[in-house]
Write a protein that binds this DNA or RNA. Structure first.
Lengths: 347, 347
DNA sequence: TTGTATGCGTTATCAG
DNA sequence: CTGATAACGCATACAA
């Protein structure tokens, strides 16, 4: 590539002049070149090469009203609690998909409640064409914002106020089949001959936690309430919940934890109490979290969800919407992706 | 905030009209309002409120030649190998700093070598005012790119190529004191009475690995070469290196691993061999990685580096440069940040 | 198929 | 202190 000339960068005007055509023709070539005679296309392309011309995105956006960028909104607490691997994999999936469509990823991290004003201004400002947002809590202000500014948005994880069956409520989301996955986990424990199966739930203001608890109940219709403890998706919370469960139900012979982190906490407590896993107590987690499930001792049987795939799906949904929307606010449909039980040594 | 009127968003023109002033005056008020009579400022502010006016960033960028955005470039291999926690913490630190300066974060993930063309076009296109890049390898094409397009850039981690002496062509980076940290780790092992101290190095095409090895050698001037093994910063690599070391030097009584992940791999091998930690072999890691060092069994003594702080520093350096550069390409200075030994049960 | 002319929404220059 | 007015770089409707 040619060196950047000092001062002004070459403009389309310059390219046109050098190629001996009008600005309009040059523009057409730069944007695909349909309906331009081949030899002119060639001439313009050469000029572009020689001058090292790169379109000015601001100018382009000004007239097309399209930025070619998408915002990814992630709430801080989320990235801390769910812990990092999630975050990275989601971003990776989204990035791949966006890159393939020549779209840029603008990252918006929400630190505290006050940041939502900033987010709203940003979205309203038209910096981006659409947005992707993750794991909202029930009282999250984001949906109101995106609706107000008319920003096409796809959510990762079913928002708290959205119905389980997609399509309604005007929200699009991509979510794992948390409930189905939980059912499979519990059935697996039953298959192993376990009869006193406890559940360590996640914080119940998150739909993923609620759905997993529901799945547990689907299978264990008459589950003893004493067998259910609420954790917070952290290892410490899982340990605490496990301790409580052992106190209330010393006879439990299996535990289904709503995520792997809590499962490791439970594991630690079980070990401290001298209970063998899976000998005395079988244990199943959820997520198949990198660096956690597989490296636990014993490695965790868990329910895998394809984080990266889900993230890609979110981006695809959004991009598709943007492609045809172009003004009318179309709402993409929601998708629920399957989960898979991964058997390891903890059961 | 007012509803978004359908169709056109309100423009500065509309605000001006409503406030009964000229577009120029309205613009002044929107950008701070110095040198405008108080009561006019008031009038314009009201109009902005009532209309729900938000400046059009594209139009603004077109004339100011400033985008208010910064690119963060991360190479895929990096985010996979160093594993995720790093990535998240760096992003978090950068995001905080940029947000505080009303600057947006555009994430550029590099999947494969071919992506560098895309990156170059993006950078050359003037989408962003500056760039932050992480942990380059010696043969990384990025520095050539940023220099060619004249993009102010701050690197995270000392780049592998020899620093050019003199202001021109100099690179700015922020790095932890890897060498000093390594020295401290090894000295700590010596203080514990260890005499056969091995080192599991990282991949030596990364400066962090080289610097840590250098630190090890600083203290153990006459170190037996057989006590040094090269890993790849993964747990599996660490295990393999540990196995090799034990083969060559069954009498070793301590290991300094160049990162925590490798240390956990080493830990596993030691346990399999029936060697007690720290009884038979003391172990020190590096990074103080979340979810790794502290939750290892036993918890790892390690060298902490302030990832988030370093990331913030990178952003600060860049922003400062952008503020005054405004045309002339000023090169920010580099910074090396201190590390701290964190004592846990593995020593 | 190609060129001409216009406008996108702001900021900056320069009179007044 | 304020108001016209000229860029900024590009895409596109329309004319040729």
């Amino acid at each position: 590539m040619p060196e950047q000339l000092p001062g002004h960068r070459p403009t389309l005007e310059a390219v046109a002049e050098r190629a001996g055509v009008s600005r309009a023709t040059a523009s057409r070539v730069v944007n695909g070149g349909d309906g331009v005679r081949a030899h002119l296309v060639e001439k313009v392309r050469e000029a572009v090469q020689e001058l090292g011309y790169v379109p000015n995105p601001a100018a382009r956006t000004l007239v097309t009203r399209r930025t070619g960028a998408v915002a990814v909104i992630i709430a801080e607490p989320e990235i801390r609690i769910f812990s990092d691997p999630f975050f990275s994999r989601q971003i990776r999936g989204i990035s791949k998909e966006l890159t393939a469509h020549d779209t840029q990823l603008v990252l918006l991290l929400v630190e505290d409640r006050g940041d939502y004003d900033r987010i709203e201004r940003y979205l309203a400002g038209g910096h981006v064409d659409g947005a992707l947002a993750f794991s909202l809590h029930t009282d999250d202000p984001l949906p109101a914002i995106t609706r107000r500014v008319g920003m096409p948005t796809v959510y990762g994880g079913r928002p708290g106020w959205a119905p389980v069956s997609g399509g309604h409520g005007g929200v699009a989301y991509v979510d794992a089949d948390n409930r189905g996955g939980a059912r499979e986990a519990v059935r697996h424990l039953l298959d192993q001959g376990r009869r006193r199966i406890a559940h360590i739930a996640g914080p119940l203001d998150q739909t993923s936690a609620v759905d997993r608890l529901d799945g547990y109940r689907d299978v264990l219709l008459d589950a003893d309430p004493a067998l259910i403890a609420e954790g917070d998706f952290t290892a410490a919370g899982g340990a605490e919940a496990m301790a409580g469960l052992l106190e209330r139900c010393p006879d439990l012979d299996a535990v289904f934890a709503a995520n792997d982190l809590m499962a490791t906490g439970a594991l630690r407590v079980l070990r401290e109490r001298g209970l063998a896993v899976p000998g005395d107590v079988a244990l199943v987690g959820f997520d198949d979290a990198e660096l956690v499930a597989e490296s636990a001792d014993p490695p965790l049987t868990t329910v895998r969800q394809d984080i990266e795939g889900m993230a890609r799906l979110m981006a695809q949904l959004l991009l598709r919407t943007l492609d045809k929307a172009q003004g009318d606010r179309a709402v993409p449909a929601s998708v629920v992706t399957p989960t898979a039980l991964v058997r390891r040594a903890s059961t």
